[in-house]
């Protein structure tokens, strides 16, 4: 059973062993509006925590998605290339962006759990 963490930049990461699956939150998806394109990194890319990993575009905005933790990209979600609308439909499920191999699990300690994130969103709005 994987554990899910959240960032203040509205990314989520589901951790299963040393593998993390990353996406943007449902709240972020609603804020961005209709998603028209997701730019995914190449496999093998090493990303440091907080670095730009993907770009998600709506018609009028392009937003960077930052790596919640450091690691190497081991898989990208090809379904998004064909169907970016998936992000609007299932942001925290089928519309994951990348999977990474974690290099520093302790970075997870800085992230929020579901309850903390919900409270964060509540306060931000």
């Amino acid at each position: 059973m994987s554990q899910i963490y959240y960032t203040t930049d509205h990314e989520w990461i589901a951790v299963d062993g040393d593998t993390g699956t990353i996406g943007i939150t449902d709240h972020a998806q609603k804020q961005l509006g209709d998603i028209v394109f997701v730019e995914l990194p190449e496999k093998g890319l090493e990303v440091a925590k907080g670095e730009e990993a993907c770009v998600v575009e709506s018609v009028k905005a392009a937003s960077e998605v930052y790596a919640p933790v450091s690691g190497e990209v081991i898989e990208t979600n090809d379904a998004l290339a064909e169907n970016s609308a998936l992000v609007n439909e299932d942001a925290e499920g089928a519309a994951w962006f990348v999977k990474i191999q974690l290099t520093n699990r302790s970075e997870l300690d800085d992230l929020m759990d579901k309850a903390a994130y919900d409270a964060f969103v509540e306060n931000e709005g």
């Binding site: 028209v36 394109f37 018609v59």
Partner: peptide, 10 residues
């Protein structure tokens, strides 16, 4: 009338 810009970009 208003045009579907989302569709155009997707």
């Amino acid at each position: 009338r208003r045009l579907d810009e989302t569709g155009a970009a997707r």
